[in-house]
């Protein structure tokens, strides 16, 4: 079973601060980390490899700095790491990101399953996984909280939905995006650290993956960011007084007055 795990480098969210004037994330002095959801994706890949054998390859698109992150991922026991890095990839929205990743996947070629995080903690759209599956023309399932079973040509997963879960079977190859808590990510061991020291992170440019310049980076990104802002909620708190009966009656009246009860 050969697995590709998509990993994004993000700013450490415990540290995120917004610039109040531009409403953009202040990145200076903030440590970069593996997108927390992707740590679960890596662990899930390694767990499958522990049982079924095969290979796990980490794939990321990002700045050259992300090599350090990928080296640390190799020390977890991941077999290979690829970084798509080129100025021409910069400014990608989720569509252009999925396109670039799909080229990386095609160049890696030999895979049965792609695992993504549910979402990235900075961009937060949760679109890249499904878009990638569409670009590759394979099936996908989001919000996976457990892998139930893996067969020779299918995978059965538990998908979280609002009021419960669904069990979904996908034919392989497929893309799944995983929830936090699907597993408990391991810590590197010296054994894998030493293996990782022998390995190089592969860096692929736009030319290496023969990218169509119209589909990558800014020019490949139809998303226009008009404005980003921190939402303001106008909350108001009223405290009802009186006997419990009186309070219940007041509450019903107020809810009815605001049309919360669906009747006049």
């Amino acid at each position: 079973m050969n697995i590709i795990v998509c990993v994004k480098q993000v700013p450490d969210t415990t540290e995120v601060k917004m610039n109040p004037e531009t409403n953009t994330i202040i990145r200076e002095g903030v440590e970069s980390v593996v997108n927390p959801f992707d740590a679960f994706a890596i662990e899930e890949g390694l767990k499958i490899k522990d049982v079924y054998g095969g290979k796990v390859t980490a794939l990321s698109m990002g700045i050259p700095d992300a090599v350090q992150m990928l080296k640390e991922i190799l020390a977890l026991g991941v077999d290979d790491a690829v970084l798509l890095s080129d100025r021409k990839f910069a400014g990608a929205d989720s569509l252009a990101t999925a396109y670039a990743l799909s080229l990386g996947v095609k160049k890696i070629n030999d895979f049965d399953l792609i695992i993504c995080g549910k979402q990235a903690t900075d961009g937060d759209t949760a679109q890249v996984g499904p878009s990638l599956a569409e670009k590759l023309g394979i099936s996908h399932c989001t919000y996976v909280s457990h892998i139930e079973e893996i067969g020779s040509d299918y995978i059965r997963v538990k998908k979280l939905v609002d009021d419960g879960y669904e069990i979904i079977e996908l034919s392989l190859p497929a893309v799944i995006t995983v929830e936090k808590g699907i597993n408990r990510p391991r810590i590197p061991s010296i054994k894998h650290f030493k293996n990782a020291l022998e390995k190089e992170v592969l860096i692929w440019t736009t030319a290496d993956v023969a990218a169509d310049s119209q589909l990558i980076g800014l020019s490949g990104s139809p998303t226009q960011v008009v404005r980003t802002f921190i939402p303001q909620y106008n909350k108001e708190i009223q405290i009802l007084e009186g006997t419990p009966d009186q309070q219940a009656k007041d509450l019903m009246e107020k809810l009815a007055a605001e049309n919360f009860l669906g009747c006049e």
């Binding site: 450490d12 440590e31 980390v33 640390e72 020390a75 810590i187 590197p188 061991s189 010296i190 054994k191 650290f193 030493k194």
Partner: peptide, 23 residues
């Protein structure tokens, strides 16, 4: 340290190694 582990009868697998702040 790894050499010392093995020399003292330990195993490289039985280790937790932190290379970044989170770990």
């Amino acid at each position: 340290a790894s050499k010392a582990i093995v020399a003292c009868g330990g195993r490289e697998e039985d280790t937790w190694l932190a290379l970044n702040t989170q770990t």
